[in-house]
Design a protein around this nucleic acid. Structure first.
Lengths: 108, 108
DNA sequence: GCAATGTATGTCAGATTGGACATACATGCA
DNA sequence: TGCATGTATGTCCAATCTGACATACATTGC
């Protein structure tokens, strides 16, 4: 995004920048939300790989469609516990989770 | 442990075998407790590497000594959230956590 | 012996979480 | 258009988690 565009958005009342900048998160908080995000994405990938709808996944997880949606959205009301338990219940292996958590290279 | 010894212990009313056998945990439950255990051990290792007592660590974590003890003991009252947050607060990197979670080779 | 230091265990009130439900939104199809 | 399917969002309250405290246990140095 170029400077002009940013300025325009700001003028219109929009927040510009990363969520981190916006919310003024500390390093640990950032690491934690990114950790959760990685798990969320993995869960969504696992569900997709099994060709399940959120409703079907919820059944297997003994939970509800809305919870599944929140899990995949990394909603604040979802704990890492729930994400990890859900991954295991859908058949993910410990190694899959470790792999998902490996830090991604930052884009240049 | 040999068969004779196991038999003696059983006769004396002791449970013999892995916690898994004993508690009849499902695969997912087993994976989950092992996941927590890996984090607990990592936390303990991180604290040791910084040469902190549980009291000192608790201060940095804005928690209490008893919580730290429970975290390191992988107590059921401790969530994965708390473990992960604590690791990050003590300065662990995402990669450290991923590494700790990699499945260990089973002993032959 | 007994302090001092570090760790473990039990309990509890307040905070957070999670399943369930309602409902809104989105897309595809006849 | 109406209907089916799939996903997203808000709320509620029962269940779970957590910091704090008390207290027990373990080890070391006097």
């Amino acid at each position: 995004m170029d400077r002009q565009k940013r300025a325009k958005l700001r003028a219109a009342g929009w927040m510009v920048g990363t969520p981190r900048e916006f919310l003024k998160l500390s390093d640990e908080e950032t690491a934690f939300v990114e950790f959760k995000l990685a798990l969320s994405k993995t869960l969504q990938a696992v569900r997709a790989s099994q060709d399940l709808s959120q409703v079907e996944a919820a059944k297997r997880l003994r939970s509800s469609q809305s919870r599944v949606a929140k899990m995949e959205a990394s909603d604040p009301s979802v704990s890492v516990d729930l994400l990890v338990k859900s991954l295991f219940r859908l058949g993910a292996q410990p190694g899959d989770i470790a792999k998902a958590l490996r830090p991604r290279r930052k884009a240049a």
